[in-house]
Design a protein around this nucleic acid. Structure first.
Lengths: 213, 213, 213, 213
DNA sequence: CATGAATGAGCCTTCATTCAT
DNA sequence: AATGAATGAAGGCTCATTCAT
């Protein structure tokens, strides 16, 4: 019908429609016809570019992860300090979820627990994204800013696990409140883990302000 | 055909078979016929007692949650101290998951993110179970054993979120290692949150040595 | 549980319940369980006495036809004249339909057009019932009261056909008006057929005006 | 696979096969697979164009009613006189039934007494068809050719009721004789109703018996 | 006599997917 | 490149019916 930009636009429309409809009805109850129709494309067009219904589902994260990745890379360059970077990273992640609730539902309720998905290129992008958190942590450990007597893998697991736990509950409860309301209390908990107790913020601060006679 | 114990036994067989087959093939790819056959029952028997395929799925946790609940109630009576109780609770939960990996897969990959499931009686049992953790936390806060400057909701979310994150990853990676290997490092992280800072090594020492004039 | 009158009572209850439920939901959409429950009996009891669901349906007319037959036999003895008897017969039939609409729905919408039903003993009773009409007609022909130049079979077909047509329409339209309102105009039509023309108003007049030279 | 005429042809084949098979086995005992197979189509094709089994049943009359309607409209233009028109109408209707016995069985044994069918567009076409009879009657009343002292509604009910009664009996008895054999005697009865007494049958008779000097 | 319990049998229906055009 | 049309394949579910007790 038209040039290649038309094709790209329709692919994008299909991904948007799929995200919304999968989120609303679940993977099984959504049909390709419904998605194609909502995107103004034919069923066959969907198959032309996404091959299978499952592959369509697995194709949803790519654009989102790239965007999130880019946003984050841009901001992290401006930020100093591992704790500040972790703060920014988790904040931006939660903000993205809040602003893209359909994508978040697809990601959290359909993809993250899907055995086939983890062998996917798209899942690799998600793992790559998590490496940003890992780098923040190891940077913080090296700089002495982050608690070194915590296994970094379990630290990350706790940060990500608690964040996703909160997001999933928010989704399942029907997104009643602003997801960002959860950020500060959640990060407060994380801070307790991240920060060195003896040698960092509190006591040096204390000794500087209170203890020097 | 036989007495009521036969019926109960078959219902139990069906739940076991369903757990295994749902775990192996996923909800959609499993068929009632397959489950019934594996349990030595007829398709119609399954429908007689479980009504729908989805309801069969939702019926899986009950027995498990009751058993877990009972085990835990029994042991917690013998344990003193909130931290010790939390330790025991998380340990037993992880142990149960390790020893019932099919149930765990059903619970973690099919039920916990299912919107319909959360309106279920079975989900209420799960929430009730979580209240045990809440009670341990509030008991610890009252006794002064648990860090009071952490929001208890977010503390629990972090404990449960990180534990489930680890369990889900273990499942998705194909259960390669002993799940219990993860317990101690994971709980070490948790301890950092739970325990009061003042009573541990760092700051009291610091304050004694550095801060008092 | 109890004496044979209990059994008879339950059979009767089942027939009543079946009549009502078949009428309400149609034969296919009604279930034996539903009927048994409504009659306070077990499914198996229904099978004990009615053998199959279809046979239960076919068992419905018997009591009704006997009652209708008896009523009619009683009254016809008191009535003189073939036309009067036909009037009474059709009137009582319509009245019975009006007062037993569920039975009428079963008879008119499920039985009368059922190929298997016509080979039934119950159908024979219905044909026997129609013989009453036949007898009235032939009696009227013999006595000279009924038009002899109409084939009696087609006369009966017309009487019964039009009556049933009206009843069926009444049923399908949801029984909005009193069925008996249709009787007099319907019978007026029938009278035109039944009565000898010569002996009624028109022709004597005609013969007076036209035939006498 | 092919052009649109192929599609129309197959739809038509399906309707023919459905008519035959519904007629032979009844609605419930017929299966979509059987009909599709007999029509050289797939089950899914049937659902593509007829949506449900019941809707397939309800789709059967359309073509027939249109054809009957057209035939009749064509002939009625050539005929003068209300009685002649009624004669032609009933004759053609009966002839159509005789020549399409499977359709007639579907119409008379499955559709005419079906509560859901009367809310159908197809049923409206049948009612429209009956209006032709109504018009003939009212035309005859106006011209003085048809007996005015009969309620036209009940006149029509009698004509149609008796015709259908005869057709249904013919079907249920297994179509043993030529249906058209019934036409003249049946119409003789109808004539008795339709015609004004003064101008027709009686008086010639009277004149024979009474008027000869 | 009565029935609770069990099931065999099978149909309607849905869609992801394909392919001729 | 794009799609309308067609379908294969399969599965959930329902009851009428049976029978051991």
């Amino acid at each position: 019908m038209a040039g290649p930009e038309k094709t790209e636009e329709r692919k994008s429309n299909i991904l948007e429609a799929a995200t919304r409809i999968f989120s609303e009805k679940g993977f099984q109850d959504a049909t390709i016809s419904e998605i194609a129709k909502a995107a103004g494309a034919s069923d066959a067009f969907v198959y032309e570019y996404f091959n299978t219904k499952e592959n369509l589902l697995f194709s949803i994260p790519r654009e989102h992860m790239q965007q999130l990745h880019e946003n984050l890379a841009f901001h992290l360059k401006l930020i100093r300090g591992a704790v500040n970077k972790l703060h920014a990273t988790l904040y931006m992640q939660l903000l993205y979820y809040k602003e893209h609730p359909d994508f978040t539902a697809v990601l959290m309720l359909m993809l993250k627990h899907n055995r086939k998905f983890i062998d996917t290129e798209a899942h690799k992008e998600i793992r790559d994204y998590l490496k940003i958190v890992d780098r923040c942590i190891s940077e913080g450990v090296e700089s002495g800013e982050v608690n070194a007597d915590i296994d970094p893998y379990y630290l990350r697991a706790t940060l990500i696990g608690s964040l996703e736990h909160i997001v999933i509950n928010w989704l399942l409860r029907g997104k009643p409140e602003n997801l960002m309301d959860a950020f500060e209390p959640m990060f407060d908990v994380c801070l307790k883990l991240i920060q060195k107790k003896a040698e960092t913020s509190e006591c040096p601060l204390l000794s500087q302000t209170n203890c020097r006679p």
